[in-house]
Nucleic acid binder design. Structure first.
Length: 345
DNA sequence: AAGCCGGGGAT
DNA sequence: ATCCCAGGCTT
């Protein structure tokens, strides 16, 4: 009796799986947190954040009771900050409606903020062992190769591959199986696949045809280049920072006042203009701190940082603060601002 | 369906 | 320098 796809995959996983923090638990709360952190984020980036998070917020109730700013600081540097706001909202709902438990019902889960098709399936299978499919970037790439489906790896191929995934799911060992699927994509069936080591190559049509390197087709990215200036406004040992508000990019994070360079404007000229806009007309000295590169999504930002010594800082309010360097780490800042702040130490 | 939303590792 | 990552939300 030849071994099935899932038998082969599970046997390989048992021998080759990485030792990752969230594989030491079946606590649905912790599995959920790991799944949100891992969205569009590499395992190595997540590990330290996950460890710290579980120490700070070991339970659903401790998370629901935490403050928004505190959570933003815990997330600082991980990116996609709407994730942490959705985690907080969902935790409050789960405390209110589900006694602080993660529901094991797909219809209830999908209604919670931050739970899409992937995360619902991941929590249900990995934490509860339910027979639910998941399609992440790994699974999508693997199944496209298994069936030699050409094209880009986007969600539009999911309808084609889902039937095969569903009929291939094993009875039992679902927590292991779905993780094994993703692990295969991370370790073997990666961008440049290691087909010789693949435990399921006998099921792979792309391997048969020798086209595994052409699937999936790379998606073309177009960058938007932006040049900005940031004013580090200082009086004595106090610095002036502001919070990005509302919606849009990096919303809720703190930063130094900044502005995009106007057409033909020099960075120093922009810094002086920015100081006028901040009503800082008493600037006694302005010196360049350096150039910081800040890349996010499809933006490539060159951020010119200027240190501006003033005789009096602008007034404080809800979204503007005067802080000393030691206090600054209590305010969640985006990576561009953090890189500038590091120049002040 | 397509665009938005971060940051850093891998190549 | 480019591509991508245990996706979800909005339009």
């Amino acid at each position: 009796m030849p071994k099935t796809f899932s038998e082969k995959l599970l046997a390989w996983y048992k021998l080759n799986k990485r030792d990752l923090p969230w594989r030491h638990t079946r606590d649905p709360y912790k599995i959920w947190i790991s799944e949100i952190m891992l969205q569009q984020t590499t395992v190595t980036a997540v590990i330290p954040y996950f460890e710290r998070w579980i120490k700070c917020y070991p339970t659903m109730k401790s998370l629901a009771a935490a403050g928004e700013q505190e959570l933003m600081s815990s997330w600082e540097g991980l990116g996609y900050y709407s994730r942490v706001r959705n985690i907080h909202k969902a935790a409050k709902i789960m405390v209110r409606d589900f006694e602080g438990n993660v529901p094991d019902d797909p219809k209830a889960l999908i209604k919670l903020p931050g739970f899409g098709p992937y995360t619902v399936g991941a929590v249900l299978s990995i934490a509860y062992g339910l027979r639910e499919p998941i399609i992440d970037a790994n699974v999508r790439r693997i199944v496209m190769r298994l069936h030699a489906i050409k094209g880009k790896a986007d969600a539009s191929v999911d309808v084609k591959i889902l039937p095969w995934i569903e009929k291939t799911l094993p009875r039992g060992q679902m927590s292991e199986f779905n993780q094994a699927f993703m692990e295969l994509g991370a370790l073997i069936c990666s961008r440049q696949p290691q087909c010789l080591q693949c435990p399921v190559k006998e099921f792979c049509r792309a391997h048969d045809k020798g086209v595994q390197d052409e699937i999936p087709e790379p998606k073309k990215v177009s960058y938007i280049d932006v040049e900005m200036v940031a004013a580090v406004i200082r009086h004595g040992d106090k610095y002036y920072i502001q919070q990005r508000s509302g919606k849009g990019v990096l919303s809720g994070l703190w930063e130094f006042p900044s502005s995009e360079l106007l057409k033909g404007e020099s960075s120093l000229g922009a810094a002086k203009r920015l100081m006028e806009e901040q009503r800082c007309d008493d600037c006694s000295r302005i010196t360049k701190l350096g150039l910081v590169r800040h890349y996010y999504t499809n933006h490539r930002v060159k951020l010119h940082a200027y240190l501006c010594d003033v005789n009096s800082l602008p007034e404080e309010d809800l979204i503007h603060r005067q802080v000393i360097l030691a206090q600054m780490k209590e305010f969640a800042m985006h990576s561009g601002a953090v890189k500038i702040a590091e120049k002040l130490g």
